[in-house]
Design a protein around this nucleic acid. Structure first.
Ligand SMILES: [Zn+2]
Ligand SMILES: [Zn+2]
Ligand SMILES: [Zn+2]
Ligand SMILES: [Zn+2]
Lengths: 129, 129
DNA sequence: CGCCAAAATGAAAATGATTGTCAAAATCCC
DNA sequence: GGGATTTTGACAATCATTTTCATTTTGGCG
């Protein structure tokens, strides 16, 4: 019953960076998978709900997903050029968020933290040929 | 020439939390303003580009805007119930993001950091009447 | 096996925020 | 005033995502 969902998960695992639902769908079809776009959306959502994949929003509002190495809470350092992503832990940030929240009387504190940059290979001088 | 833009900016200033373009548009019309939705979108974008207002994306992909007290870089502590927003500085986070980025060879580092929670008035026991 | 109820699937239509178009209106400049 | 330029906004177009709903698959169960 989770055949399709697993296939989606696998496709994600083989990817380096974050991929959109449309993207995953297109790739799966390319490789001959028989699956519908709706199912890809549903699988991705289920995986995200279950904490099996991470989600974030691109600047233009698209949801993108990634199968991360760890289930533990972590953040991402994403190359805005090629999408190459590094998973990073940030104990300092976790503490900071908690503190800032409680200082102002907020409870049930959550946070979103993403770091973007240009990775080393993308910032190398362009080489032709 | 900037009459409409200023009107949009003013509407935002009078709001406590983040408001969507549609939201701002509706409120302006309610108060009798003669303005089109397209113009509200354009004004909001221009204000955001000029750093006069802050933008963030809600969980359901809507862009929301806020006229903040300061032009300086800062982050937000947002009540997920009522939208009440507190502007917070996070020097520790700024440093952390820079460090994490350069540690991995990334350059031109930027970051998004938002903290969500339930504010004190929203977490008070419900009172009827 | 047969048989049925529940869950999964996907094609097609609906949704809804945002953007593009383009002609009319306001503003500027001389 | 008159023409160039910018701004505006009604309306159409986009496009990712969600809904619908009929069909298929799956999982017992006798
Ligand atoms: Zn890169
Ligand atoms: Zn964290
Ligand atoms: Zn609140
Ligand atoms: Zn910051």
């Amino acid at each position: 019953m989770t055949t399709r969902r697993d296939a989606v998960h696998d496709t994600l695992r083989k990817s380096e960076g974050f991929r959109s639902a449309q993207d995953v769908y297109a790739e799966m079809r390319l490789h001959g998978a028989k699956i519908g776009l709706t199912t890809v959306y549903r699988a991705l959502q289920a995986l995200a709900d279950g904490g099996k994949v991470d989600v974030l929003r691109t600047d233009d509002g698209e949801s993108v997903y990634r199968a991360c190495a760890t289930d533990a809470h972590h953040h991402h350092l994403v190359c805005r050029r090629c999408g190459h992503t590094v998973e990073v832990a940030g104990p300092a940030v976790e503490r900071w968020a908690e503190m800032v929240g409680s200082e102002h009387g907020f409870t049930e504190i959550t946070h979103t933290v993403e770091v973007f940059g240009t990775c080393s290979s993308c910032s190398m001088p362009a080489r032709i040929g």
